[in-house]
Design a protein around this nucleic acid. Structure first.
Lengths: 120, 120
DNA sequence: TGGGTGTATTATTCTTCCTAATACAGTTCA
DNA sequence: TGAACTGTATTAGGAAGAATAATACACCCA
């Protein structure tokens, strides 16, 4: 399904979260799709099940996925995302804007990057 | 000069970097201004000098500041910022845009946040 | 019932963060 | 020159987080 970078300084469970968020954002994983089971994914990636569980648990508490005990983990509708997440992302936006302008990326360039991406 | 949050999960040296970047971005610290000496700042914040040094060293390797051994640390002109940094910030921009759109923040809102901020 | 799912717990190892205590070298200035 | 700054480097140790390992338990479903 994807690879991990063991050399990366970022913790494995965070890399996992990023990968899954990416898949959801790019609509590869859609609402109510099932995520790979903890044990299977752990075997495929040859990492510890507890590490997967940690990533899933965090994704769940952020509202990206939901869990049905005994059944599995599934992509949550974006409406169930936590408000605290939106706050955080607004802050991220402001922060990266300030930094981008400081290092010399100008507004038009930022506009371009925004338009280049999503649809909404 | 500023406070640190010991409870914060973010490492102290990263908090320090953020604080100084913020001061530079907001023009409180300007080109060639001297930063507080490692020992003095360590005493003021009651943290270990090595922690300050780590923050300064990282800021230097990113190109935010430059060091004159025996003299001190100084704010670098933005032109000396590393290209790798610009790459990183472009990625951050794209990533946070995708995430913002996914959670339901629309483009106009992002525009608003951008205009609210800097001047450039 | 059997085999899948998630969950919880305990112990162990490894790495990073931070502190602590030094020692060394360049700069400044009286 | 020498005292008092500056940054730099090294070694050691403690604390916390990341990851592994090995279980055990509970839920779901054919």
């Amino acid at each position: 399904m994807f690879e991990l970078d063991v050399e990366n300084s970022k913790p494995i469970y965070e890399q996992l979260m990023d990968k899954f968020k990416e898949l959801m954002i790019n609509d590869v994983l859609q609402e109510h799709n099932q995520l790979p089971s903890i044990r299977i994914l752990a075997r495929e990636l040859t990492i510890n099940p507890n590490t997967i569980q940690k990533a899933y648990k965090q994704l769940e508490s952020d509202g990206y996925i939901y869990t049905l005990p005994g059944k599995g983990n599934f992509v949550a509708p974006p409406t169930s995302l936590k408000n605290s997440l939106e706050e955080k992302i607004r802050n991220d936006l402001e922060k990266v804007f300030a930094e981008a302008l400081y290092i010399g990326i100008d507004k038009h360039e930022i506009y371009r990057l925004l338009e280049k991406g999503g649809d909404s």
